[in-house]
Amino acid sequence: MAVALPSLPGLKRVAPRRGAGALIPAALAAAAWPPVILTLFIWPPENWWSGVDTDWRLVMLAVGLVGTPVGLWLLLNSHARTGRPSTRLGVVCRFTVFGGLLAAAMQTVMAVVMAALSGVASQSLLQGLGAIETALLIYGVAGLPVAVMVGVSYALWGGLCVAFLGFVPAPVVKNRMGVLQEPDVTGI
C-alpha cells in the first residue's frame, strides 16, 4: 500500500511559481468564488455600501480580496522557511483550515459587535439584556455554523486555485549518495 500512496492525486511535490506575475492571477481566481460572483449577477445587491446593512456577499468578496493575498503570502513564507506545504493537497488543506478559522473568528466578532450595538440602542436595562441575548443567539449560535461552512467552502475554492495556479511540480532530486531522507508522501 505504501507504494500506491505517492501515485494518488495531489501528493506530488510542488514548488511555488517564481514572480508576482504568476501569483497575482492565482490570488484573484481564489478570491472570485463562483457562487458569490454568479449570485451578484442574478440577484444584484440592494445596499452596496451602507454599514451594517451591506450585502453579505460584498463583504465576503472584500474579505476574499484581502484574505487571499495575505494567506498566499503566509503560505509562501512558510514554504520558504520550512519547505511545507510541499504538495498540492497540503496547500488546499492549509487554505481550508485557516479559511474556516478566519470565518469563525469574523462571525464571533460580528456577534459580539451586534450584541453590543443592540444593547446600547435599547431603552431600558431589561430590554437591553433581551436585545443582547437575541443578537447573540442569532449571530453567534445560529450564524456561526453557517459562517464556518461558507468560509470553508470559499477557502477550499481558494486553496484549489492557489494549488493549481500558484504552484508547479518541483524538480526531482536524485538521492545519489544515500543522504536524503525518504520522501514524505503526505506533504501536509
Rank of each mutant, 00 (worst) to 15 (best):
M1F: 12
M1C: 10
V3L: 04
V3E: 14
S7R: 12
L8H: 03
P9Y: 03
G10M: 05
L11R: 12
K12L: 03
R13V: 02
P16I: 01
A20M: 04
L23M: 06
I24F: 12
P25I: 02
A26H: 02
A26I: 05
L28E: 03
L28P: 01
A30K: 03
A32S: 15
W33R: 07
V36A: 14
V36T: 15
I37D: 09
T39M: 07
L40H: 08
W43L: 13
W43I: 13
W43C: 00
P44L: 00
P44A: 01
P45I: 10
N47Q: 06
W48C: 01
G51M: 08
V52I: 07
T54S: 01
T54W: 09
L58C: 09
V59N: 09
M60N: 13
A62P: 00
V63S: 08
V63P: 00
V66N: 06
T68R: 08
G71D: 03
G71T: 08
W73L: 14
L74W: 06
S78M: 12
A80F: 00
S86G: 14
S86I: 01
T87G: 02
V91E: 07
V92E: 11
F95T: 04
T96L: 14
T96W: 05
T96A: 15
T96S: 10
L101W: 01
M106F: 14
T108G: 08
V113T: 00
L117Q: 11
S122K: 06
Q123K: 13
S124K: 05
L126C: 01
G128H: 06
A131N: 13
T134C: 00
A135N: 04
A135G: 04
L136P: 08
L137I: 10
I138R: 14
Y139E: 14
V141E: 03
P145R: 06
P145Q: 12
A147S: 02
W157D: 12
L165W: 12
F167I: 11
F167L: 12
P169W: 00
A170S: 14
P171R: 15
P171G: 14
P171V: 15
K174R: 14
K174Q: 07
K174L: 15
K174I: 06
N175A: 10
N175F: 01
R176D: 11
M177I: 11
G178K: 04
V179K: 06
V179Y: 00
L180H: 04
L180Q: 15
L180G: 13
D184M: 07
T186Q: 09
T186H: 12
T186N: 03
